[in-house]
Design a protein around this nucleic acid. Sequence first.
RNA 1: GGUCCGUUCGUCUAACGGUUAGGACGCCAGGUUUUCAUCCUGGUAAUAGGGGUUCGAUUCCCCUACGGACUACCA
Length: 506
Amino acid sequence: MKEVRVRFAPSPTGPLHIGGVRTALYNYLFARRHNGKFLLRIEDTDQARFVPGAEEYIIEALNWCGIHYDEGVGKDGPHAPYRQSERQEIYKQYADQLIAEGKAYYAFDTPEELEQMRERLKAKGVATPQYDAFTRGEMLNSLTLNAAETQQRLDSGESYVIRILIPENEEVVVNDLIRGEVLVDSSRLDDKVLFKSDGMPTYHLANIVDDHLMEISHVIRGEEWLPSAPLHVLLYKYLGWEPPLFAHLPLLLKPDGNGKLSKRDGDRLGFPVFPLQWADPKTGEVSSGYRESGYLPDAFVNMLALLGWNPGTEQEVFSMDELVETFSLERVGKSGSKFDPEKAKWFNHHYLSQLADEEVAGLLKKILAEIGLSFEMSFLINVAGLVKERVVLIPDLWEQSHFFFVAPESYDEKVRQKFWKPETPAMLNDLIAFFEKQTDFSSENLDGSLKAWIQSKGFGMGQVMNTLRLVLVGGSFGPGVAAIASTLGKKEVIARLQNALSRLVE
RNA sequence: GGUCCGUUCGUCUAACGGUUAGGACGCCAGGUUUUCAUCCUGGUAAUAGGGGUUCGAUUCCCCUACGGACUACCA
């Protein structure tokens, strides 16, 4: 079997959204699964839509996700360059070849003339006005002009495009790995522009030429390309090349209602649609990213992998290696998937709680560094073990653990009202005496001796525990009181008790 | 409008002619817990509709409905 070579070919018109990331992921998994190559090609043939920073964004996003490519922009390889704008001179010869063989032609119509043609046909009741067998005979092109006229226009520098000459009444078959055979009558197709007047090829020409030259074996791309796949098949035939195998992936849909997931949905429903945060260079508008929101790349990738693909077993937590082992195009579904932000959170919570305490401590260390705090790693590891299961997103780590690093500056008023009794100050003083006597400050020991002490004193369990919690953390949340006290240490626990005494007693 | 693609719990999906239609997220209830979470147990909930084919259709075929993509000198 031929070597598997697949590519991800985004255009640098903005940030990659999660649908694009998923396409890249499936390409990557497929390549790895078959010991093939995965390449990144930048399709920047539209100069007008170029957005500065987009290419860098794409590379950084793939990197963050752990989707590594073997050849491509920023990496080189046997088929460099991988940026289409740098391959410009390659495409023209193929367009010329098609013209020489009568499979394409020059067209001189201006945008205004094209618009007029469409208006004219619409007025006549034609449902789909297009540049095709029906209309090309009355347009300004090398089919209606004689050779001398055509040459003269070319020589005089008049701007032109090159259009494919679609054959009539030919059944075009697209063999899709996911959808099976898709048949289209060629007379439904239009004479698409292959080569633009600015000297750049269109996507249609460029992707066929590059996929052929780069020896791409499988084209795995979004379903939005399915309608133009017959054109691509035709181009391979015209050029005398063997087409790659196609797999058109179902779309990612918005969580509510219907339709393709878009940038707007994220803003509207409060979840990121981009892997990384993106600041639009023109408007300055900032769109949130999974990375900045506190998702782990592994969780993000796992969640994305299962959106449109399933292993056929009940396993749903997969490392990247496990995905590579298990992935197959046969198990990619046909229908679009609504994106579920809740499931994304669940995955992140799961991954976070499965992380080693040391790793969570590392995350904590970074958060603390940002606000100018620094603690012993052993202490951070302790804290991490206590709070990691209570955290959904990385920033929640701080919400759940701040009291370990900073003594409470205020106390939750509702909790205070509920548990603060006239006899509380006396109880707190008793507690100070109790803690001072403790020689073994381990969580286990503290838990036992504290409970025993409460009983011996005849206090209510909830009364003491909740008040102590309020004093230690400032509210009614967090891990077990004994664990907190143990981690905080004797000195700090007593200091907080004294502090509460002075601040809460009127 | 035209072309193409699609349709199983609210959501992601399994079941490739025979299952009490399975799992996960969410939600609800119970349990664990000194708090809040986690966790555990249970529950809720689906084959779009109509025709065929077949001993038997979620599964195969047709129609309808609904949804989506595409319809540029954009990718």
